[in-house]
Amino acid sequence: MTDRHAPHGHGVDDHVYLGLAQSDQEAEARWAYGTGFADPLLGVDTALAPDVDGADLSLYCQLLGDDALILSQRLIEWCTRAPELEEEVALANLGLDLLGQARLLLTRAGQADGTGRTEDDFAYWRAEHEFHNVRLVEAENGDFGYSIARLLVFATARRALYLRLADTRAELDAVLTSVAVRGAKELAYHQEYAAAWTVRLGDGTPYSAQRMQAGLDAVWPLLDELFTAHEVELRLGVDPAELRAGVLEELAAVIAEATLVVPGAAPMARVGGRAGREGVHTEALGPLLAELQCVAREHPGATW
């Protein structure tokens, strides 16, 4: 991701592509495309809005950014394993959208609290208990039905949250608002993709319906955490509980169209009142982070 030593606003100056492009014919240099990453907030105004606590804003960006980062990692695990090439491409595309949102949010988190931590610091150098994602996104992929059920729930809830942020809390932070405005449009495609598969499998053969219903049943206990406020969300006036009724209504409409049944499963228990938002995760997160972080930790500061 970003060069951790680049002064803010000039990260692109050191980009490997520039060196190659200058030493070669312009068209020939294009092979280097994609070999580097610039600061995703290059030159964006970093000032905080008055009355907004930087540490609170940072933590909130981490909650949302960690959700996006971890689900992105789960989605790309489908590469080479999806039922059809088209689905593999689709799931990788969705993962890329979420990774882009995570990069912006985690970069903003490091700006807002004044620590200057980069997206890489957050992604690669935090321990498991320092991740704030909900347990929904870290659960193992399971079968295609489970992954679709999880995507349907997440995309529906996150799009609703982004729309709410953009509509009613635009003054909270300009960067967060711009992530929300664009992210809501991206998530509309995610939601539509997951809804289409839910209907196709649910209203398909008896066997596909059974597998899709099993996916929804298994995901449902993890739904509650999306609407359970972390204290920082209450302080910032962005209580996700307000989204619950609308999201459940949207999910119920898709499930009805799929001729399936809205599950009635009870929420997964919290541990001493804590769950993913507070850094208490399931056993699924450790192996995911080991894979996500191993290259960066094996070769600290490496560039290529």
Partner: peptide, 17 residues
């Protein structure tokens, strides 16, 4: 363009060039 657009660095480098 998209949040995950990986081409921003190349665009910026090309503009400067």
């Amino acid at each position: 363009t998209y949040s995950g657009c990986p081409a921003v660095a190349e665009m910026a480098a090309d503009v400067r060039l």
